[in-house]
Structures are given as structure tokens and as C-alpha cells.
Design a protein around this nucleic acid. Structure first.
Lengths: 194, 194
DNA sequence: GACGGCCATCCTACCAGAAGGTAGACAAAG
DNA sequence: CTTTGTCTACCTTCTGGTAGGATGGCCGTC
């Protein structure tokens, strides 16, 4: 009943946290081997090459992200509350330092030196996140629940950029609170004022 | 009269563009040697270690940035116009692909794996940029030239984060225009409306 | 003006360790 | 008796870095 081969999951989880810390070139098979308690060669059994490893890692990350958005659609009806949940998710991740950066955001910064296959996955995440944010904002505006200053699409891009920038600032300042300090007003601005 | 040893400048310029492309671990002495047309060992004459190279590179970048802000203070009096110039500078850099990312923003994303000395310089840039933005916004608000929705400090952090996030999005989408699409409305929002 | 020393620059050659990756043996499970 | 997962051992290339020798400009001295 338990997952078959939790080892490969361990490898993915470990690689993910190493990527979040230092990007594609910031870790090696040896690093993973040390943490997971396995030999380098054994990792190659699960993921023949580093590109395989990172590609499936990002693919899985994307699945989780899509699932998260879908879940938010089901669980939360109010658009503003959906955005709050999204920002809140990251605020919690950053606060407890469990995963203080979006894997795809970090990899995107290194796009020019990324293997093409990984780059494609990363770009796809940006498109899907942006599409979801656009739909949320569009719906909020249409139902008079959100106050937009420009098109939903433009507002979504700005929202996404600000969230990513806030992650960066939190890391640069070494202060998790800065994330909330930036995203809080971002959400307030979307709120309908009487 | 000409600069003494333009070679070391060439090395710094080359390293800068390589860092902008792939971060600290995204380039090697061999890469620089190839581009500059010099042997690996010769680079060590100018910069004994990679840490030396990157530290002085970032230090110089910071000097240029500070000089740029000081210059903006002298040349442009209107706060909104100063911000527009700042954003416009990056918009141009991204559009012509000459330096499509802030060195410090890129390095900040890898802070956990950065040598401590480099990390210090990177953090210092964030503080000085944020301080300048804060002062511009504060002055603009005080003189009734800008419309702020919260404190100058908070607004400055949000501004900086959005600009950095816009760089990331432009890279992720492979589309320079997205930078202007995000920063344009950001500036508009600060404008006084009658 | 010639001479020798100094020093900055660049070179070839080399090194140790880390990188990603391969080959093949072994054990356990089905 | 094959499949799955792990291991040891090894390979090649890259990595940052070192040692020491050539070159050549600049200096003060004779």
C-alpha cells in the first residue's frame, strides 16, 4: 500500500530543496547522495541524467501547483480570498523556511543556462500561473468583487511579478516578514472600497 | 591617459554578463578566458580567486548604481520622472538584451549558496536601492507630487519587488515587452489623479 | 644614451578534487 | 530466474587554483 520506491521521492524532495537554495548549477549528485544516504550511482538508477531528474522534478512541481490552483477553485469561491490563500501559502513557506522560493521562479532566473527541456517546463509554469491569476482577476472584476486598474491579464502579470519579487526581497533581507509587507498592500489594493 | 590595464575591465565585463546569464555557479574561469582571449591562469593574476572577482564585480556594480541614483537626483527633479527614468533604464537594458537582469537581483536568488563576502555586497545593494526609492517616494508624497497608498518605505519595497519580478517575467516569457507592461501601470498608479 | 633591476602581464604546465556518468557485481523479492 | 535497487570501482571532463618561466615597459644610475 505504501508508495512504491520512496527513495526516488526522497531524491526529488532533496533535489528540490537544493535547487530552491542555489539553482540548477548549485547542487550535484554527490550533494543528494549525502543527504539521502545513498551512493551517487544509485541516483542514476532512478534518474539517468541530471536533466531527467530536474525535468521530472519541475514537472511534478507543476502538477502540484495546478492541483493547488484547482483546489483553490473548489474550496474558495471569493476571488480575493483565492489570491489571499495563494499569497498566504507562500508567506507560510517562507516563514517556516521549508521552501522559501518557487522552484520555477528560481530556475527562470537562470533560463539562459538551463537545459532546453527544463526551460520548457519552467516557462510552462509561468504561463499556467499567469493564466490562473488572470481568470481569478477577470472573474472578480466581472462580479464586482475586485477593483482592477487595468486589464485582468496586465493585473495578473503585475501580481505575479510582485509576488516573485517579494520572495527575492525576503531572501535578500533575510527577513520573511518582508514578503507579507509587500503582498499585503498588493491584495488590499484589489479590494473594493466603498 | 588611457585606463591602465583594460584587461581586468574586460574580465569584469565578461564575468558580469556571464553572471547575468546564469549566476555564480553558471560560469567558470575557462568561460571568461575563451571570451576575453586570455589564458585561465592570467585571470588569476588580476583576481586571485573567483570570490575576489565576483566581490569586486559586485562592488563596482554597486558604485555604478549609486552613481546612477546620484545622477538622477541631479538631472531630474520630479520624483515620478526619477522613477520613470529608473524603470526606463532597465526597460532599455532588457530590450536590447545588453544586460537583461540586475546582477544583484540574480545573485540574491542564490544567496544561500553564495560566498559570504559576495552575499554581503548583494544585500548592501538591496538596502541602498530601497533607501533611495524610499527617499524619492517620501519626497514625492511630501510635495504632493506622488500619490502613495501606504508608507514610503512599504511603497518602495513593493516598487523594487515588482521591478525585479518584471525582469524575471520578461526572461521567463522571453519577451522584453512584459517588463514595460508591468512597470508602466506601476508608475501610473503613483501619479496624482485629479 | 646604455645598463641593469624591478615589476606587471601573460604564458605553459601542472595539480587535486568535484562534476556527471558508466560497468558490472551482488542481494533480495516476486 | 528475472527484475529492482543498491553497491564498488572506474572514467572523463571540468573546476578553481598554483608554480615558475618568458616578455617587455619603466625606472634610476652611471
Amino acid at each position: 500500500m505504501s508508495n512504491l520506491s520512496t527513495t526516488s521521492d526522497d531524491i526529488l524532495a532533496c533535489a528540490r530543496s537544493l535547487i530552491v537554495a542555489g539553482g540548477y548549477n548549485g547542487f550535484s549528485y554527490a550533494d543528494i547522495a549525502d543527504v539521502v544516504g545513498i551512493r551517487k550511482a544509485s541516483i542514476h538508477h532512478h534518474f539517468p541524467s541530471k536533466v531527467d531528474l530536474v525535468r521530472t522534478l519541475v514537472a511534478r512541481y507543476r502538477e502540484e501547483a495546478e492541483a493547488g490552483m484547482a483546489n483553490l477553485e473548489l474550496q474558495v469561491s471569493d476571488p480575493l480570498e483565492q489570491l489571499r490563500s495563494y499569497a498566504g501559502y507562500w508567506e507560510a513557506c517562507i516563514a517556516d523556511a521549508s521552501a522559501p522560493f518557487c522552484v520555477c521562479a528560481l530556475l527562470a532566473s537562470q533560463l539562459p543556462v538551463l537545459p532546453a527541456e527544463v526551460g520548457l517546463e519552467v516557462r510552462a509554469h509561468f504561463r499556467s500561473l499567469s493564466a490562473w491569476l488572470t481568470s481569478v482577476l477577470e472573474r472578480g472584476a466581472r462580479h464586482g468583487q475586485l477593483q482592477l486598474m487595468s486589464t485582468p491579464r496586465a493585473e495578473a502579470e503585475a501580481f505575479m511579478a510582485t509576488v516573485h519579487g517579494a520572495m527575492l526581497s525576503a531572501r535578500a533581507y533575510g527577513d520573511p516578514k518582508i514578503f507579507g509587507a509587500v503582498t499585503g498592500p498588493l491584495l488590499e489594493r484589489l479590494q473594493i472600497r466603498s
